[in-house]
């Protein structure tokens, strides 16, 4: 009986399922099918099935592997920095000080800025001739000559990471702050009476309380960071000398610049595969901790 009532309502899910199948399910399947063909961007030549040829090529392609490495380095660097900086800032603005309300409100500005605007803003700041960064560092006598931040291979990825951290640490800090404010005051008082010092209070009262929120922030940031495209593409298009070409930019270039949808799809499938592995490892770690 209960089951009957329940099934009656399945129709209400139908529109959502239909749209998801059209824009997510079916394209995903077609990407997988495409990855076994030599399909091009335009319908010039007839499409041929090439079997696993694209895959064997992909695994031998050093450029692809190094683009995955760049995605990995980028994701690791931004997520670690954002978590540390965001938590520190969350703790800082949780202290009482004059102007607290204004500072807390302004925290949202970096996060609210559209990604494209953020990328373009930092591109202007890093401009080698008229950028604010060079001008400031030069006037403060920190650098003797202007630096080409975005075209010196050793500096570019770091400059992009800095720009991404500036935008996204603020999300982490706001999530941490919201969670800090829900700690019951008496818990901290009780710890004080028990003679716990500041570090112990953080370790045994504050940290356990904010941990679930930190996990949410961590997941949100990892999901975004491993599929990074916009900020890098706008700031450098993957250059100089492909030193900032992430996995997604590599796939984009293969499919749309080189007009090879088939092998582009292969790389996309492999990237999805790697991301799924990361998600699964993360889930496993979470389960372990719960036990």
């Amino acid at each position: 009986m209960e089951e009957d009532i329940s099934n009656k309502y399945s129709i209400l899910i139908a529109p959502m399922v239909f749209i998801m199948l059209t824009v997510i399910g079916w394209p995903l399947i077609r990407t997988i099918l495409m990855s076994f063909t030599n399909e091009g961007l335009m319908n010039l030549d007839p499409v041929k099935i090439v079997g696993i040829e694209n895959y064997t090529n992909a695994f031998q392609n050093k450029d692809f592997l190094s683009s995955l490495k760049i995605s990995g380095i980028f994701a690791f660097a931004v997520v670690t920095s954002e978590m540390i900086l965001g938590t520190t800032v969350g703790l800082l603005v949780n202290q009482p000080f004059k102007g607290q309300k204004i500072v807390r409100a302004l925290l949202i500005v970096p996060w609210a800025l559209p990604t494209v605007v953020n990328a373009m803003m930092w591109k202007l700041i890093y401009n080698p001739e008229y950028g604010a960064l060079n001008s400031m560092l030069y006037q403060m006598n920190i650098i003797p000559n202007y630096v080409s931040w975005l075209s010196t291979p050793s500096k570019t990825l770091g400059a992009i990471i800095f720009a991404d951290v500036w935008k996204n640490f603020s999300l982490v800090s706001m999530i941490v702050l919201a969670s800090l404010q829900s700690i019951p005051g008496h818990q901290i008082e009780a710890a004080k009476i028990d003679g716990a010092n500041a570090i112990q209070r953080f370790r045994y009262v504050t940290l356990p309380h904010i941990l679930p929120s930190l996990q949410v922030a961590l997941v949100l940031r990892i999901i975004e960071a491993v599929k990074v495209f916009d900020i890098i593409y706008i700031m450098t298009k993957g250059g100089p000398a492909n030193k900032t070409r992430s996995g997604t930019i590599f796939i984009y270039q293969e499919a749309f610049t080189n007009s090879r949808l088939g092998s582009g799809a292969t790389y996309a499938v492999l990237l999805v595969f790697f991301i799924l592995i990361i998600i699964m490892i993360y889930m496993k770690l979470l389960k372990k901790k719960d036990n």
Binding site: S6, P27, R30, T31, I223, V226, G264, A268
Partner: peptide
């Protein structure tokens, strides 16, 4: 209101949220 086996649809939806747009973009473009 009526959580049962079909809630797996929601789980699948959340997983697709984690995948890069480039995984769908090629056939959608075509």
């Amino acid at each position: 209101r009526y959580p049962n086996k079909r809630n797996i649809i929601l789980k699948i939806a959340i997983v697709t949220f984690m995948l890069p747009p480039v995984a769908y973009a090629l056939p959608i473009y075509k």
